[in-house]
Design a protein around this nucleic acid. Sequence first.
DNA 1: TTGATCCATGAGAGCGCTCTCACAATAAAG
DNA 2: CTTTATTGTGAGAGCGCTCTCATGGATCAA
Lengths: 346, 346
Amino acid sequence: MPELTLEDIAKLVGVHRSTVSRVVNGASNVSPEVRKRVLKVINETGFHPNAAARSLATQRSWMIGLVLPHSVSSFFTDPYFPQLTQGIAFGCNNHDFTLSLFLVSNKEDEAKITPRISRRGMLDGLLIQTGQPEDLLVHRLAKSSIPSVVLGRPAVPAGITYIDVDNVQAAFNATRHLLDLGYTRIATITGNHDSTVTSDRLDGYCKALSAAGISMDEALISEGSFTEIGGYNAMDKLLEARPQAVFAASDSMAVGAMRAVQEAGLRIPEDIAFIGFDDVPLATLTKIQLTTIRQPILKFGIKAVELLIDVIENGQKPARRIIMDTELVIRDSCGAKMIRLNQDGK
Amino acid sequence: MPELTLEDIAKLVGVHRSTVSRVVNGASNVSPEVRKRVLKVINETGFHPNAAARSLATQRSWMIGLVLPHSVSSFFTDPYFPQLTQGIAFGCNNHDFTLSLFLVSNKEDEAKITPRISRRGMLDGLLIQTGQPEDLLVHRLAKSSIPSVVLGRPAVPAGITYIDVDNVQAAFNATRHLLDLGYTRIATITGNHDSTVTSDRLDGYCKALSAAGISMDEALISEGSFTEIGGYNAMDKLLEARPQAVFAASDSMAVGAMRAVQEAGLRIPEDIAFIGFDDVPLATLTKIQLTTIRQPILKFGIKAVELLIDVIENGQKPARRIIMDTELVIRDSCGAKMIRLNQDGK
DNA sequence: TTGATCCATGAGAGCGCTCTCACAATAAAG
DNA sequence: CTTTATTGTGAGAGCGCTCTCATGGATCAA
């Protein structure tokens, strides 16, 4: 099958290239008879217009890029990012965009990838996952003219369009839920200390405690780096502080931490109650199902794509922001059901 | 920052467009003095050549697509695909290719995506994950002229370039390992019955049994659909058949199955020994670390990209195939260490 | 009949690059 | 001092589309 062009189709049908172009693009001003003949030949030949030529002529590629920076690429072990990617891919499909994936695993990658994403004509826009504060990529995008949306609140959000969940409120709700159940010694396992996600969730935790008139105890805060093993190690350190309940800033960390608790011979939720964050499938796969904060991950991805399309079509300014709500999902690990049962029993 | 073109740069430097193009592409026949002046202006202006124009002129986009079909996209809950994606992304970075991701979640997606991937000028080549047998996408690619490599053995491999691991040999080794440890009632939990992966692994399992002179027992074969919960359910059914050991065709399924065993009050590996497949991080996160078959997932992805580049540069024919080896990783769940300990003790 | 209006189609410039070819200037060889 | 090779640069066609504008025929009102 040779590489056909509009011109070839035109010749076959006996019309001008322009007419074929009109048919391909669904323009209205083509006579039904001609349209039919053109479509027939297109179907017979399996013709598809050349994307590069079209991009060049229209200055639109209908492609967007998703950049997962260095600090985040190891997170591919966490179910969050696959799910997010799926949501974004779904959003792209809905709007006939193609998704390009830029996984930056190290500094060399970054150097190689940067020119590719800033090259015009290839991408209509960019979705950029925040990682560390002062993320270089986030900065560079703000300078570049390519439309972009940041996933997660950047450390310095001024003038940047981003989408995030309300982490402060979510963490507040989680902690508050534990307080409502009567726990007073509540620990938290945080993610990497240098991300805004971590500081926001820690913030919510602190706010809930202080709203309940409970003073902070440094011994009840431990860093878990968003991995299962990180949660396990963080819990190890927390054990001597004897918390009654733990708010883990991700489900993976919660699962790791719960393993540490069980290996120490303690029961969940009787001895230590747990609440996680994310509501990834993992949360329901443990023997003691995890109470957690549900993030609308798929919706988040879809929304991010729609926000980016808005930026592409209506310009970078003014900077927009979308903050999505989360939801508390009560299962077994927080002890709510057990406590209610006991009360009913009395 | 305006959208600069080669022409603009040329004007600024006072040379012809062609010369700037030579500098950008590192052609040798440019005088050092001129090259320096051109580079200076390029750096000052932050010029990047337009990708669409370049693609149009060279008929190369330096982009490849990764297609994860419908039957597979739910697998995004399994760590295998994220890791594979990472390997592919890594391979792309190494060779200055950009990766496009096509997640096909349903039939509508497929209809929308197909024209995008077959449109010329957008992709230099395609990586296609096999799913069901008679996969429509795999068929369509064979018809289309776009260079492509299939990931996993297609059901009808004639004339198709693909890359796979030696699943038969791997499953043979796994089962053989259990036989060597003295188990004779060995069960297997398979993936979806309609994939070649499943049939190959089942094949290896059967071959090992028959080589040991053990007759097949249908009651010892159970389908687990490659998910943790699938493994759990499959094990439930196997329990009454009282196997001494289980070969699970994925680590996720093994973990699910082990949970079922523990909930039934049985010990691993004393009562039932386990061996998995994949060696994803999950395998070492369980309390009883999983003996498993290590797939070189990252290398597999990188190799797949290199194979595709070969096809892009040297043509689709002849069809090539690469079969990669696997490795047995002995941990706790198979009982090898325990058995050795006991023997030493005697 | 004349002109105005509408519509389907053709003509052709232009998107921003690459790449072959021609040409001039210089260097090497006779 | 010519002839030939070598090198650096310019010129311009062409990649396959889109999109504006021109054109010519049909339709309709005056």
